[in-house]
Design a protein around this nucleic acid. Structure first.
Lengths: 246, 246
DNA sequence: CGCTATTTTGAGATGGCTCAAGCTATGTGG
DNA sequence: CCACATAGCTTGAGCCATCTCAAAATAGCG
């Protein structure tokens, strides 16, 4: 594939991501065309920060390629990983449409490509399109739902169940499938998993070691492959018998 | 005060609550008048259920008098108290404007008066009024913020800090001030507090006993009076020295 | 090949949970 | 108006999941 066709493929690709983005669902004709027209692209290298917690949103973002980690820092200084955002999803979109500061910092978890729109353009859109306004409400609502399920977890599940659930979710959304199992497709550390589950990296490490001995996962340095998705999902649903030998 | 003037007072009162309700903020003239016109009133006795978790919202509610407890039941069967709703606040409003099932059950925590609107009317309003649409977004966004702060708490504060924070919040919103301190103005059990903090009634009981010995609170059967709001607030901000003797 | 970040493992401490038992307001029926 | 029933609360004892801190092992990377 030469440079030219590669560029064309990329454009089509980005076009598709834009048209499928949650905030733009259902937009028609001129509206969606103008959204595509004014989109800008930027690429991030792993570790680069897209925006900081507390900053005022100036742009709306969608991930076109790669993964972005959203981290919230509490008053006590503890880090919480709110979410890993993948291709097709908004980053910080709920804050932007509400006009409030970002509640978390967004950092590229892998090299990534981000699509961006100036906030003024988005405000116009949401103000003028009933469909976009409804999408904005849904976006924020989904965020609330997600938070509620985190509260449930923290209030009533063990660390092991929480880890199983988040890991199952990550591999469900990941495309890296091998004959040996399904891997998380970006580098993720024990610390990252700990922040996702509200625990410590030590506890995560111990649990992964146990799961490895049971043949559930194949953990590595910044890398995890789930060898038995079904059993992991069983654990995630708080069915301890998922750990029984087969 | 005779029955007639009492009825007039009540009406003015309810009128004021409606006009100040979050979803109706900023509505003008005919719009707000029609909102007032079609409002219906109902009263609940303590313990009565307004709606059940999982039900599809048929009406929008605002509390005109009393308190309503929102309880979410997890898959494991654990109860979580999401929030105690007071006069002027919506109950289940975020679910209604989103058109999703109620995430929690609403039960009167004291005798209460509720103002209600048919959901069709509210959908018309939110669909036709830009102001109401923006208010809906804010309502849902505030819910998300609230949930995020619960996640923070659960992930990084001790039970004692969480209890201090929720109790401080309750008395901040409560109007029952006496010379002996500030009381929560509706009956609230140890179990209720435990559900609010994600702990057990035993742990709550122990902490309250300790606080009583320190002169911080005056706990009773389904009743709590905070005698030193400032020290409690200090605890809530995770400053252990708040417990030092004075 | 050595440096450094990441991970594992160990040992010990502990906050909060569980369960059992007893206590005390409050309301109720006799 | 008393005695009893009951719901709510307290207290005790034991336990255990998880945290903390220290140290060693390992794996990439420059």
């Amino acid at each position: 594939m030469n440079a030219m066709t590669e560029a064309v493929r990329k454009n089509n690709d980005i076009d598709a991501v834009i048209r499928d983005a949650p905030l733009f669902q259902g937009l028609q004709g001129r509206e969606i065309d103008s959204v595509v027209a004014v989109a800008t692209i930027r690429s991030l290298r792993r570790g680069e920060v897209l925006f900081q917690q507390g900053a005022h949103p100036a742009e709306l973002y969608v991930v076109a390629e790669g993964w972005v980690k959203m981290t919230h820092v509490t008053q006590n200084g503890d880090q919480i990983a709110l979410r890993f955002v993948q291709r097709g999803e908004h980053v910080g979109g709920a804050a932007l449409v509400r006009g409030v500061p970002f509640p978390a910092t967004a950092m590229a978890a892998s090299d990534a490509i981000i699509i961006a729109w100036k906030s003024a353009f988005i405000f116009d859109l949401v103000g003028s399109s009933r469909t976009a306004a409804r999408n904005a409400l849904e976006l924020v609502g989904d965020r609330a739902d997600e938070f509620l399920s985190r509260i449930q977890e923290l209030a009533s599940d063990s660390v092991e169940v929480r880890l199983a659930r988040h890991l199952a979710e990550l591999v469900r959304r990941s495309a890296r499938k091998t004959d040996r199992g399904v891997g998380v497709e970006f580098p993720i550390s024990r610390q990252d998993l700990a922040e996702l589950c509200g625990t410590t990296l030590f506890t995560v490490s111990r649990i992964l070691t146990r799961w490895r001995d049971l043949g559930l996962v194949d953990p590595g340095r910044q890398r995890i492959v789930v060898r038995d998705v079904a059993r992991l999902a069983g654990l995630a649903n708080d069915r301890p018998q998922a750990l029984d030998a087969r």
